[in-house]
């Protein structure tokens, strides 16, 4: 039996840059933002590709997002996913329960079309909405078990083994497929795309579909930015030449004496 994982990714703002909100406060203004896929999801993609390779299957990537989100699908196609599904919609209008329902619909439709996914991988949490729950809600939609917040995944003999750092040390789960697993970065090194990989990704067909049901939303009233805090930092210098000023500071604070 081959193993054909589905991995879910989200186009998110690069939160290391400055964040500007839309006028209605319902989302981040994309005109001023860089976009990316979160580190958790990059690792989920890598794990999906590894699981597919070990299981003689193929990895499918999916996203729910606007037309530009195809960029994140192609990034996953460039590193080894072989099929892609794009639910074209404004992700900011979709709450976590809405997204889980749309992913479940893709899983069911693919199974009906003869390409079942025994394993669905997601990131532990989205870098923008930070809801920490889509994977778990998806599992309940499908009636499957879910393992949350692990960093390694492997499949053998119809069972998935997943492990990661837990509250009581490094924890391992083992359970029969099908299953949902959400990933934290750190367990694998995502591969870089090769030039042939990029070429292939550019040409790959992406299955486009519309959302199945109208979203109920995220119970969001509005987004707000925290008030800017005036900076009072004293710059002691640049590079190694700042060392004497730094050690002067240590002396003033009385942290140098032994």
């Amino acid at each position: 039996m081959s193993v054909n994982p589905l991995v879910c990714v989200k186009r998110v703002v690069d939160s290391s840059g400055e964040v500007v909100l839309t006028e209605d406060g319902q989302g981040v203004d994309g005109r001023y933002a860089g976009f990316t896929m979160s580190a958790h999801e990059e690792c989920a993609v890598e794990l999906a590709v590894q699981v597919a390779a070990a299981g003689n299957g193929s990895a499918t990537v999916m996203t729910l997002g606007d037309a530009d989100a195809v960029e994140q699908l192609r990034a996953a196609l460039a590193v080894g996913c072989t099929a892609a599904t794009h639910v074209v919609a404004d992700s900011q209008a979709f709450g976590p329960a809405d997204v889980a329902r749309e992913i479940a619909a893709v899983v069911r439709d693919h199974e009906a079309a003869g390409t079942p996914h025994e394993l669905v991988l997601l990131g532990n949490d989205a870098a923008d909405s930070g809801d920490f729950q889509v994977g778990i809600r998806l599992a309940y939609e499908l009636g499957w078990p879910v393992v949350n917040g692990v960093s390694t995944v492997s499949v053998a003999d119809g069972e998935v083994t997943a492990s990661g750092a837990g509250a009581d040390g490094h924890e391992t789960y083992r359970l029969p497929l099908p299953a949902v697993v959400t990933i934290l970065e750190g367990g694998v090194e995502p591969r870089y795309p090769t030039v042939p990989g990029r070429m292939k990704a550019k040409k790959a067909r992406v299955e486009e579909r519309e959302p199945g049901v109208a979203p109920t939303g995220a119970s969001r009233l509005r987004l707000v930015l925290p008030p800017p805090t005036p900076s009072s930092v004293e710059i002691l210098g640049e590079g190694p030449s700042a060392a004497p000023a730094v050690v002067d500071l240590f002396e003033r604070l009385g942290v140098l004496a032994r």
Binding site: S232, E234, I235, G237, G239, P240, A243, V247
Partner: peptide
């Protein structure tokens, strides 16, 4: 972290820290 700090040095930690460590040893 820089704008919220009380003091800052702008530079690569791998270049700045050896100089600080050396300066501490020199003064001691």
């Amino acid at each position: 972290m820089v704008t919220k700090a009380t003091h800052a040095v702008i530079g690569d930690l791998h270049e700045v820290l050896p100089a600080i460590n050396e300066e501490i040893r020199r003064r001691r």
